[in-house]
């Protein structure tokens, strides 16, 4: 049984997520709170689903970083800026999911993260790919062609199995690509990616020449 915590300042959203996960026999929601500080013993939880905008009027990136040091964090957020999404992954979040995602994606994401995996939602794949492509103009390729291709298919809504079929590789190979993409996001080039994502978010040209 997976012990799950929920952090969201919106009571209706909290209740909704709890209901979705409550339908999953493998999940038990043991804490549902408005603030990270109210979580009872984060270390004892398998996964914490954490909102990115917790009434502070800024993305809770520092809080996510702190929490990610103690437990596995799946960021669940709604309208979010690409830069904020990348920043929270760079801060150690093990996945990112939009609040309007289908119920089964919630369960899948929680399972993936609980198993120490990285949940690359289609939305996150789109953001990472755009940022990497923008950064490529300046920095040279940040992802291999195959990694970028995998990102592209995942962004279009394909499962890892569908992506693998489309690329003519094994599903485990796609899993490996996703792991590598996470490593690239949380190490080394992250500053560049975040910078470019911010540029994208502000509607400016991501091309430094433009």
């Amino acid at each position: 049984m997976l012990r799950v915590g929920i952090v969201d300042d919106h009571p209706v959203a909290r209740r909704g997520i709890a209901a979705v996960l409550g339908d999953d026999p493998d999940c038990e929601v043991v804490a549902s709170v408005a603030r990270i500080a109210d979580l009872p013993g984060p270390e004892s939880l398998d996964v914490v689903l954490c909102d990115l905008y917790l009434s502070e009027g800024r993305p809770a990136v520092p809080e996510v970083r702190e929490l990610a040091a103690r437990t596995r964090v799946l960021v669940v957020s709604a309208a979010s800026q690409p830069a904020d999404v990348l920043a929270c992954v760079a801060a150690g979040a093990a996945g990112y999911l939009t609040k309007d995602s289908e119920d089964d994606l919630f369960a899948e994401a929680v399972r993936t993260v609980a198993a120490d995996g990285f949940y690359l939602s289609p939305h996150l794949a789109d953001v990472v790919r755009s940022a990497a492509q923008a950064a490529e103009n300046r920095e040279g390729p940040l992802l291999t062609a195959r990694e970028e291709e995998a990102l592209g298919w995942i962004a279009k809504g394909m499962t890892h199995a569908q992506t693998a079929r489309r690329m003519g590789v094994a599903t485990s190979t796609v899993d490996t690509y996703v792991k590598r993409i996470r490593a690239r996001l949380s190490l080394g080039n992250k500053a560049e990616l975040v910078w470019f994502a911010r540029n994208l978010a502000e509607g400016g040209s991501a091309d430094p020449r433009g």
Partner: peptide, 21 residues
């Protein structure tokens, strides 16, 4: 405005749209 709409209306609507509420 987006934040207000999001916090006060959208989250509730999206919650209602899923599950068996």
């Amino acid at each position: 405005h987006a934040r207000l709409l999001h916090d006060r209306v959208l989250q509730t609507m999206e919650t209602l749209a899923r599950g068996s509420w």
